[in-house]
Design a protein around this nucleic acid. Structure first.
Lengths: 124, 124
DNA sequence: CGGAATCCACGCCGATACTG
DNA sequence: CAGTATCGGCGTGGATTCCG
């Protein structure tokens, strides 16, 4: 029963938790969501992903590439031309990620309401 | 078209991103996964969620409670008795979270292999 | 038992400068 | 254009202590 949380949760060297931690990263989610539609270039991503620094985008893309979720294609021209796109693995992940994003969008108001209620109760 | 990544991604005050960031938090995912099965007490969670500190567990539970994903029930006895369980909202989220966890488990070896390949290429 | 509060180390990340 | 390298601040979170 691989879905039992007690299984993947209590193991010492659980690599799944590490992987999950990386996948659930803020910028990774954003980048993968953008690349779902089409191939993009570095600067393009930098301008589109609002708030990301060049450093973090570089680091994020390297990690995604290392995990085999994103492929990096370099065209040996001057000036350099690099394209990023999702791999098949990345695309298969994106289905679930999209579900997560969709859930958040649908329940955004519920959460906002809950927060308002909570803050009200604390303040009172 | 609420699912268009360019929508929720480029807006300045996008609350969805903030919510998503919190939901995708490492400990939140773990705690919710554990609470999917049953109600748990604080110390029980502390012992089960391997690696979490008391501080982080407290903070995580407070956030989850504020977001309306987890309910906190205090029994006014001595010694204190507090139970945590998922709300309906939390349960509806857990379906997608479980999907994410399942994906990670299924593709764990793919990612490990990709990492090994990447590291090999870098070292060589 | 289930926290709250305080202190502080460390590692993350932004800013900046430089390069092929 | 697409990075790498370096530095420094500061926020995150661990350890510890105390409390109802």
């Amino acid at each position: 029963m691989p879905n039992d949380p007690f299984q993947w949760d209590s193991r010492e060297d659980c690599e799944v938790r590490q992987i999950l931690d990386r996948i659930a990263d803020k910028w990774s989610l954003l980048v993968m969501a953008l690349l779902e539609n089409r191939t993009m270039r570095f600067t393009e991503l930098l301008k589109t992903v609002d708030g990301v620094s060049q450093r973090m985008l570089t680091v994020t893309l390297r990690q995604l590439e290392r995990d085999g979720l994103v492929s990096r294609t370099v065209f040996p021209v001057i000036p350099p031309h690099v394209e990023y796109s999702l791999t098949d693995l990345g695309r298969s992940l994106n289905t679930t990620v999209t579900a997560l994003v969709t859930w958040t969008e649908s329940h955004q108001s519920d959460i906002a309401a809950s927060r308002a209620r909570y803050d009200e109760a604390v303040a009172g």
